[in-house]
Computed example of a mutant assay.
Amino acid sequence: MSPFKSSTGLYENVAGFLCYLFAFVGGVVFLAVERRSRFVLFHALQSVMLFAGLMVAHALAGFLPIIGIVVSLLLTILGLTLWVILMAASLQGKWFKLPWIGDLAEKQLQRM
Results as ranks from 00 to 15, higher is better:
Trp83Asn: 10
Leu21Glu: 01
Lys94Asn: 11
Val40Leu: 07
Ser47Cys: 08
Gly62Gln: 07
Ile69His: 09
Val14Gly: 00
Trp83Asp: 05
Phe42Gly: 08
Met55Tyr: 11
Val56Thr: 11
Ser6Tyr: 00
Phe24Tyr: 09
Val14Arg: 14
Glu106Ser: 10
Pro65Ser: 14
Leu98Cys: 12
Leu73Met: 10
Gly93Trp: 07
Lys97Leu: 03
Leu31Ser: 09
Ser2Leu: 02
Lys107Met: 09
Val40Lys: 02
Val48Lys: 03
Trp83Lys: 12
Phe30Gly: 13
Leu75Pro: 08
Leu45Trp: 06
Ser47Met: 01
Lys94Ala: 10
Ser37His: 03
Gly102Asn: 07
Leu41Asn: 07
Ser90Val: 01
Gly62Phe: 07
His43Gly: 01
Leu21Ile: 04
Ala57Asp: 00
Val71Arg: 03
Pro3Ala: 00
Ser7Trp: 01
Arg111Phe: 00
Ile66Glu: 14
Gly62Asp: 09
Leu21Ala: 15
Ala88Cys: 09
Ser37Ile: 11
Lys5Ser: 08
Lys97Gln: 13
Glu34Thr: 04
Leu104His: 00
Ala105Leu: 03
Pro3Glu: 11
Ser7Glu: 05
Leu74Phe: 12
Gly53Glu: 07
Val71Gly: 00
Ala89Thr: 01
Ala15Trp: 02
Ala61Met: 03
Leu82Cys: 09
Gly27Cys: 05
Gly16Arg: 03
Phe42Met: 05
Leu86Cys: 12
Arg36Tyr: 01
Asn13Trp: 07
Leu41Cys: 01
Phe42His: 10
Val29Asn: 02
Gln108Ala: 11
Ser72Thr: 03
Ala32Ile: 11
Ser90Asn: 07
Ile69Tyr: 14
Ile69Phe: 15
Gly26Val: 01
Ala44Trp: 03
Thr81Tyr: 15
Ala105Asp: 04
Lys5Glu: 13
Gly68Thr: 10
Leu82Gly: 12
Phe4Ala: 05
His58Leu: 10
